Simulated scan of single mutants.
Amino acid sequence: MHHIYHANTDNENQLFFQVWQPSSKPKAVICLVHGIGEHSSRYHEWAEQFVEENIAVCTYDQRGHGLSSGKRGVIGSYEQLMNDIDFALEEIKTNFGDIPCFLYGHSMGGGEVLNHLISRKSNYLGVISTSPWIVTQEAPPKILIPFLRALANFIPSFSIKTSFDAKKLSHIENVWIKYNEDELIHHMVSFRLFVDAYDAGYYILKNSNKVKKPLLLLHGNADQITDCNASRIFSEKIVNYGTHIQYDKAYHELHNEFCHQKVFADILNWLNARLAENK
Rank of each mutant, 00 (worst) to 15 (best):
H44S: 11
I177L: 07
S122F: 09
L125S: 01
N123D: 15
E52R: 15
N207V: 12
I134A: 07
M108N: 01
V135C: 06
C101T: 14
I160M: 10
Y104V: 13
H187K: 15
I185S: 01
S107N: 04
D199M: 06
P146M: 05
Q62L: 15
R72A: 13
S157K: 14
I177A: 05
L144C: 10
I55L: 03
S235W: 02
F102M: 02
F16N: 09
A7P: 07
V51I: 13
N209Q: 14
F258R: 10
H6W: 10
K279W: 12
I143S: 14
Q21A: 13
A222F: 15
I75M: 13
Y179D: 12
V33K: 01
L89A: 04
G66F: 04
P214Y: 02
F258N: 07
A222S: 15
A28G: 00
D84I: 12
K213Y: 00
G109W: 02
L193Q: 08
Y251P: 04
V113P: 02
M108F: 00
F158N: 04
N95G: 08
E53D: 06
L169K: 06
A47S: 10
W270R: 04
Q261G: 10
S24W: 13
E112G: 12
K168C: 10
H44M: 09
H44D: 11
L216I: 00
H244Q: 06
N278W: 12
E52L: 14
S77G: 10
Y241C: 06
K213Q: 01
I85P: 03
F158V: 05
D84E: 10
I172W: 12
D223G: 00
Y60K: 04
K161A: 07
N221R: 03
Y124S: 05
A276N: 14
L125H: 02
F17W: 00
V57R: 01
E236H: 09
E236Q: 14
I155Q: 13
Q137N: 12
L254W: 04
P146A: 08
N209I: 11
D98C: 06
Y203C: 12
I143H: 09
A197R: 00
I128F: 03
L15T: 04
Q261N: 14
F154C: 14
